[in-house]
């Protein structure tokens, strides 16, 4: 055997992704993450409610720039994420395989679908407006135009089982339209999500647009659901009991709530509902006046 075969490999310290940086949990806590057969994989940060609050601050700070970027610019950045993921395909195939107990070929299919999902949403950034907005033919001399706008900071409880494809399927539609996100990764399998942070950090995505926390949804969830500076919450990965609790907490400041949807197959055509769930509609009126010299009005 060659000498290199006895070389000790270097473990990766998995860290959170908040505000474009990679902090450990401020609590200093970690928890053990194992593969599907119970073999230890890594110690993941066990995020605290303080980490969650920091993530909201980062997401809020990033919202103005991200929502104000052109849709074309956002589309290019989402596409860049796909490009970066493609380059790290092998890493994710391994991590997803370990996390979800999938064969290499099945894990590869999952990763490929996740890459293509970024491409799908890259194309949506500058198209959703023409689908859900438009001129309204009001019965009066008015220009009247409705356009969608992002709702703000969105908390995403990521799916528990589909730790990577499901994760991408819930993050991408939130940020495609200009929202920023605070994501609670799959508790059992957070490693692909934490690695995704490394991809996002190198994809021209401004820091804070996506913030990824590992830990317990039922610990962080209630704080994020009742947080007064969070505008919406996607309960994709919350069980029925937690989902109800979080929906009640969310009512405090009337967060937009996307309830858990039964998803048999994250590969299926996602449609537009995950985008429209986190869009506001703004309607602008303006008088059209009349042509006569004295007849027009502001």
């Amino acid at each position: 055997m060659s000498e290199s075969s006895v070389r000790l490999n270097v473990f990766k310290t998995y860290k959170l992704y908040v505000g474009g940086k990679f902090p450990r949990s401020e609590s200093g806590r970690v928890y053990e993450v194992s593969d599907s057969k119970g073999k230890w994989l890594a110690n993941a940060p066990l995020s605290s409610r303080k980490d969650a609050r920091d993530a909201v601050v980062a997401a809020r700070k990033a919202f103005g720039g991200w929502s104000g970027a052109t849709a074309y610019n956002r589309g290019q950045i989402l596409y860049r994420i796909a490009e970066m993921l493609e380059g790290r395909r092998e890493q994710f195939v391994r991590e997803v395989g370990e996390a979800e107990g999938l064969s290499k070929s099945k894990a590869a299919a999952v990763v490929d679908a996740a890459i293509d999902r970024w491409v799908w949403y890259a194309g949506w950034t500058d198209k959703i407006g023409q689908l859900v907005g438009g001129a309204n033919p009001v019965a009066g001399p008015f220009f009247n135009l409705s356009t969608p706008e992002p709702t703000g900071v969105v908390t995403v409880v990521a799916p528990q089982d589909s730790s990577f494809l499901g994760l991408v399927c819930v993050i991408a539609p939130v940020i495609a339209t200009g929202n920023t996100a605070v994501v609670i990764a799959s508790e059992k399998s957070p490693l692909p999500a934490l690695s995704l942070g490394e991809v996002l950090a190198t994809s021209d995505l401004p820091g804070g647009v996506v913030n990824i926390l590992s830990g317990k949804a039922d610990e962080m969830g209630p704080h994020l659901a009742s947080h007064q500076d969070v505008n919406a919450i996607d309960l994709a990965g919350a069980g029925p009991v937690l989902a109800k609790e979080l929906e009640i907490a969310a009512a405090d400041n009337l967060k937009r709530v996307l309830r858990p949807q039964p998803v048999d197959d994250w590969n299926a055509d996602p449609g537009t509902s995950r985008m429209t769930a986190f869009l506001e509609t703004k309607t602008v009126w303006h008088p059209t006046g009349s042509l006569g010299a004295g007849g027009s009005s502001y």
């Binding site: 074309y72 589309g75 290019q76 596409y79 799908w120 890259a122 194309g123 949506w124 950034t125 500058d126 198209k127 689908l131 055509d269 537009t272």
Partner: peptide, 18 residues
């Protein structure tokens, strides 16, 4: 470049185009 980028995004969304 923007035109190709834009229509690229439509290719898999034609069902949504109305």
């Amino acid at each position: 470049a923007a035109h190709f980028f834009y229509y690229a995004g439509w290719a898999d969304k034609l069902d949504h185009a109305g």
